[in-house]
Nucleic acid binder design. Sequence first.
DNA 1: ACATTAAATTGTAATGGTTACAAAAATAAA
DNA 2: TTTATTTTTGTAACCATTACAATTTAATGT
Lengths: 136, 136
Amino acid sequence: MVTLKAARALLDEKGLRSSATRIHVLAYLLSYPSHPTADEIYQALLPKMLTLSKTTIYNTLDLLTEANITRQITIDGKEARFDIIIVDHGHFQCNTCKHIYDFSVDLDECMVADLTGFKVAQRNIYFKGICPNCQK
Amino acid sequence: MVTLKAARALLDEKGLRSSATRIHVLAYLLSYPSHPTADEIYQALLPKMLTLSKTTIYNTLDLLTEANITRQITIDGKEARFDIIIVDHGHFQCNTCKHIYDFSVDLDECMVADLTGFKVAQRNIYFKGICPNCQK
DNA sequence: ACATTAAATTGTAATGGTTACAAAAATAAA
DNA sequence: TTTATTTTTGTAACCATTACAATTTAATGT
Ligand SMILES: [Mn+2]
Ligand SMILES: [Mn+2]
Ligand SMILES: [Zn+2]
Ligand SMILES: [Zn+2]
């Protein structure tokens, strides 16, 4: 598994201890960059780590987000999702199949003067509608 | 209260029955377009309507959103907020004072080709950071 | 006015994602 | 090995939201 090594390297790079849980959570996000929820990650790792606790999943995801390795995204307000891609990009969630698509967007292009004086730390953009698959 | 009449007119216009609860919820949103939560509206109206139920607040806000009178916005993933301004605009939430600022944005300007074939029904954009007030 | 039907509101209980917290386990330092 | 620190675990609490049945209110028809 190449992602395990990559996960370990990412953690080392950020000065975080590479515990088994952290490696596997991060490796999962690298392997499945599909904006999983905490529970999806938990369910996926449970067969491999029988004593895994969901609290640890939350702790780990908080740690990764704090270290700027992952990004927490809020789309439906129901459950948080986590993105291994941290560069600014847009999300499109299909109202039918609920799948979340990435799309690139140039946020500098559409900015207006209203935010002079504001210190912007994070930019989020998400659309909703029907994806091509679900339209026909 | 001019907003009571305005609220009634808005409901009539959309073919919704203008019950007391609906009028007051809508009038509150018109008077305080500060993206209140359901509970904030509930607490504000309670002194006027002693038997008010929070379920009714949720029902009413759902109704208004469904009728395209208000718009539900999700920023922190913790609690939903409601906006009386339904034209596309951006939101900036200050990490310190938690206040939510509106800002205008030209979303058509920054669009890319990635979403051809997608039927976009709703567009959301929100930033986070520190507002001018809280910077010094 | 009265009966009948439909719509709106209420109260309570359940849901579900997330967090708090203290105990247990694992790891690092001495 | 001891000691200290970090990580993980399990459970309970939290809290916004929803489900649902009962009650109240309003509209309709006679
Ligand atoms: Mn993404
Ligand atoms: Mn707004
Ligand atoms: Zn779809
Ligand atoms: Zn502020």
